[in-house]
Each structure stands twice: as C-alpha cells, then as structure tokens.
Amino acid sequence: MNIPTNKFTLLALLWFGAGVYSLVFREAESGAPPFAHFDKIAHFALFFGQFWLIAKALMQARQAIPYTALLACAVLFAAGSETAQALFTQTRQGSAADALADIAGAASALWLAHKVTAAKLLPKAKQP
C-alpha cells in the first residue's frame, strides 16, 4: 500500500503527534473532570479522529481502505498508549476501559468510512 500524499495524511500525522503528546508526555491536570467518564469520551474522540483522517486520506487518493489492518493497528496503538501511560507517567494510569474506548472510536471511524465509500459507489438514480 502506498501512503497517500495529501492534506489528510498530513493532518493524520499531526493528530497522531498531538495524541501521543496528550496521552504520554503531558501530565494530567488535577481537578475534577467536567462530567463522569469524560476521559472515555476523550479517548473515543481521539481515536475516531485519527482513524477517520487515515481513512479520508485513503479515500481521497482513491485507494482501498484496509479495514482489518487498520483495526489491528488501533488495537496495538490502544494497548501501547495505555501501557505507556501506566509505565511512563506519574499522573495517568493504564486502563482497559480506556483501551476499549480507543478501539470503539477507531471502529466507529472505520464503519463510517465504509458507509461513505459504499454510498459513493452506488449508481446515481436516472433522472427523467
């Protein structure tokens, strides 16, 4: 698979860097979250954004989206990020629930990409 060179690839790389920074290199702020399970929504959104940008880069380049491989990458990235949080940060902890939220975000993005791709492939209705 060729890596597409478009703005979505650049955005995906920037998003990845920001995600690694926010999950591993930036210590958690003390204080109560805005609402219960806020961190799960943040994990879901972070992975949704990452995998949507990857899929969008492939769609724009008219390349097939390797859904299974991307989902496997999401599982590895989720496990790696949670392990890194547990081992290398003082104010964060690794959590299986956070990893599940990560994977759910990636799976949702890939599901949406599949639906968008399928809709683009449908033949246009004939107009009278």
Rank of each mutant, 00 (worst) to 15 (best):
M1C: 03
M1G: 12
N2A: 11
N2D: 03
N2W: 10
I3R: 14
P4G: 05
T5K: 02
N6F: 05
K7Y: 09
F8E: 07
A12Q: 07
A12F: 04
L14C: 15
L14W: 00
G17I: 12
G17M: 10
A18C: 13
A18W: 10
G19Y: 08
Y21E: 10
L23R: 06
V24T: 08
V24I: 15
F25N: 08
R26Q: 13
R26Y: 07
A28F: 03
E29L: 12
P33N: 04
P34E: 08
P34N: 06
P34C: 13
F35K: 11
A36G: 03
H37Q: 08
H37Y: 07
H37M: 05
H37D: 04
D39F: 03
I41K: 05
I41F: 15
H43M: 09
H43F: 05
A45G: 11
F47W: 05
F47S: 11
F48M: 09
F51S: 03
F51R: 06
W52Y: 10
L53F: 04
L53V: 04
L53Q: 04
L53E: 02
I54A: 05
I54G: 02
A55L: 01
A55Q: 01
K56I: 09
L58V: 13
L58E: 07
M59K: 14
M59C: 11
Q60H: 11
A61R: 06
A61S: 12
Q63P: 07
A64P: 09
A64E: 10
A64Q: 14
I65G: 08
P66L: 12
Y67G: 01
Y67D: 01
T68I: 10
T68A: 14
A72Q: 02
C73S: 03
C73T: 01
A74R: 02
A74E: 00
L76A: 04
G80Q: 02
S81P: 01
S81C: 01
S81E: 00
T83N: 05
Q85D: 05
A86P: 08
L87Y: 15
L87D: 04
Q90N: 13
Q90I: 14
T91W: 11
T91V: 11
T91M: 14
Q93I: 04
S95T: 09
A97N: 08
A97C: 10
D98N: 05
A99T: 11
L100H: 07
D102N: 13
D102V: 06
D102R: 02
I103C: 11
A104M: 06
A104R: 01
G105S: 05
G105I: 04
A106V: 01
A106C: 05
A107Q: 03
S108P: 06
S108A: 15
L110T: 00
L110M: 04
L110H: 00
W111H: 12
L112N: 02
L112F: 15
K115L: 14
K120D: 02
K120A: 08
K120I: 02
L121S: 09
L121E: 12
L122S: 08
P123M: 04
K124N: 10
K124F: 12
K124L: 15
A125R: 12
A125M: 12
K126I: 06
Q127C: 02
Q127Y: 04
Q127A: 07
P128G: 01
